[in-house]
Each structure stands twice: as C-alpha cells, then as structure tokens.
C-alpha cells in the first residue's frame, strides 16, 4: 500500500566531502509512504554516509533533504525536531549501556516527545511484548543477545513513530543464527506500513521485502529499479559484477 501521491523523503543533489575526499557524489532519491527502499553497494560506496546525511547527524556538503515536502536541510530548521521524526539504527552499539531495555525505549519518548512516565512505560512494554521481549524490560543491553539488542534498538526508533526509518546494515554484526529474528521484525514493520530506507548486505532479503533497490557505487546511484526486476535483470556491467560477487560468497 504505497502512497504515490507525494514522497515522504526526498533527497536532491546530495553531496558529502570529507576534506578533499568526495564520498557522496550527487545523489537524488525519493521514498514514498509505506515504501521500502534498499541501498546496496560494496563496502565504502557511501551507504552509511548517505543515511547519516539524511538524518543530518552528518553535515551535508551540498544538496537538499525534504521530509513530507518540508525542506529540513534549510537553514534555521530545528534539527533536533527533525531527527526525532527520522529513525536511525546502526550496525551495533545502538542501545545505551547504562539503561535497561525499557528505559532505552522510554528515554526519547519522555525527553523528546515529553510523554509522561507511565504512558511511555506502557507504550514501551507493549512494543517489547510484541517482539517477544516482554520479560526482558529490566535487563541491561549486555545481558541479552545481539539479535535481541538489535530488535530492541529498532523498536526504540519505531516507538518514536518516525516518518521514515533508516536502517544501516542492522544485521551485519550479528551471528548468522540471529539474523532471522531481526529480518522477521522488519517484515512485520513492512506489513504495518512503516516507511524504510535500509542499507543492507542481505540481497535475498532485499529482494523479498524491498519495493525499490538502489545500487550505490562510489557515492553515486549507478543503477536502480523495482526489486525483483533489479535482481533478475541487472543492466549495467558493475551491477552484474557486484551481484555475482555477492552471490558467490
């Protein structure tokens, strides 16, 4: 149920330099409400940098970012307010080590959304139960498995009801047997209509859940398309090479 009327997230001419080094090289993309867009590309192609720029925890060198039509990269826009509307989950070290799982989830609800304590707590509990962690609310992050940590980190972002959720290779630091439970959660979010832009190395998963795939190469969009079509009929040489390299692993 993608709403094609107007893009939820729109990135125009995004560039990012680290000193002289050009990491993002003019990227344009759109993500529509309910759509899942997968970013793939070899290591160092700029996937993480792109996501961080969208969230603006990294300053842009050039370009614009629109969220529901509002230019959130415009000068004077309160970035903290915007970040609260864009969820971002990293590979690892997402959860705050000094807080219980429950308090990890309630922290931003209380201090950013100004929700009262009890309400935040019951909201967090209901999310935790939904992902089968209802009895782990009082545990600390280092006392639960990596897969549980990542799922908790994802629902911590989702509980803020972001307009778009950015996932940066959320399974790549996990043991293979823990990957499945995290992917299941993302499938569930998709069926709930969450809008997601995700960098991933899990190509078969991208093919299954993503509606659109973007192949990033040296900071530029090299090829993109409908997920199934993209994986079945890649057109350009580097895409073909990348896909066969990934498949042979």
């Amino acid at each position: 149920m993608i709403d094609w009327n107007s893009p939820r997230l729109k990135v125009v001419g995004l560039k990012k330099f680290y000193g002289e080094r050009q990491v993002i090289n003019g990227v344009d993309l759109e993500v529509f409400p309910g759509q899942i867009v997968a970013l793939i590309g070899s290591s160092g192609s700029g996937k993480s940098t792109l996501l961080r720029c969208v969230n603006q925890i990294e300053d842009l060198t050039d370009g614009q970012i629109f969220l529901d039509g509002e230019e959130v990269s415009a000068p004077g826009v309160d970035q903290d307010r915007i970040r609260a509307q864009i969820g971002l989950v990293f590979q690892s070290f997402n959860l705050f080590g000094h807080l219980s799982i429950l308090n990890n989830i309630t922290l931003a609800l209380r201090h950013v959304k100004k929700m009262d304590k009890d309400k935040a707590k019951s909201l967090a509990m209901s999310w935790l139960s939904r992902i089968g962690l209802g009895d782990r609310g009082d545990s600390y992050p280092d006392k639960i498995s990596g897969g549980q940590q990542q799922r908790a980190a994802i629902i911590r972002a989702v509980a803020m009801e972001p307009k778009v959720l950015l996932l940066d290779e959320v399974t790549s630091a996990l043991d293979p047997e823990l990957v499945g439970e995290v992917l299941d959660l993302i499938r569930e979010l998709k069926s709930g209509g969450t809008t997601i832009l995700m960098a991933t190395h899990e190509l078969s998963f991208a093919r299954e859940v993503a509606d659109w795939v973007i192949f990033l190469e040296q900071g530029q969009i090299y090829e993109q398309g409908e997920a199934v079509d993209f994986f079945e009929n890649p057109k350009l040489p580097r895409t073909i090479e990348f896909l066969s390299r990934m498949r042979s692993r």
């Binding site: 925890i57 307010r81 509307q85 971002l88 070290f93 922290l107």
Partner: peptide, 18 residues
C-alpha cells in the same frame, strides 16, 4: 564512551545537552 552512543542519542532527537 563509544561515539555511536552519542549518535544514537542525537538520532532519537535528543539535543546536544540532553
């Protein structure tokens, strides 16, 4: 303190001082 802790906090919309 690992830098991603700060980034995770900021990405949830917490201000610098928060």
């Amino acid at each position: 303190v690992h830098s991603s802790q700060r980034l995770a906090a900021r990405s949830l919309g917490l201000s610098y001082s928060q």
